[in-house]
Amino acid sequence: MDINLLFKIAAIGILVAVLHQVLVRAGREDQAMMTTLAGLIIVLSIVIKEISTLFESVRTLFNL
């Protein structure tokens, strides 16, 4: 779970950056914006899932 999660997000980031550049060069700025937003939302869902697991573990540990 731990380190490959970091690499997964880095890979998505680089992929989105490359896609953005390619689409901008191809003259489709709006689709470039779409792919960037899509990448952001995917990574946001992963991050939110991880934050919820962290909060859950802190809650159970300190019985908040």
Binding site: L6, I9, A10, G13, L44, I51
Partner: peptide, 9 residues
């Protein structure tokens, strides 16, 4: 995002 994930780990 990466700094948040590193902090969480």
């Amino acid at each position: 995002y990466i700094s948040i994930i590193a902090g969480i780990l």
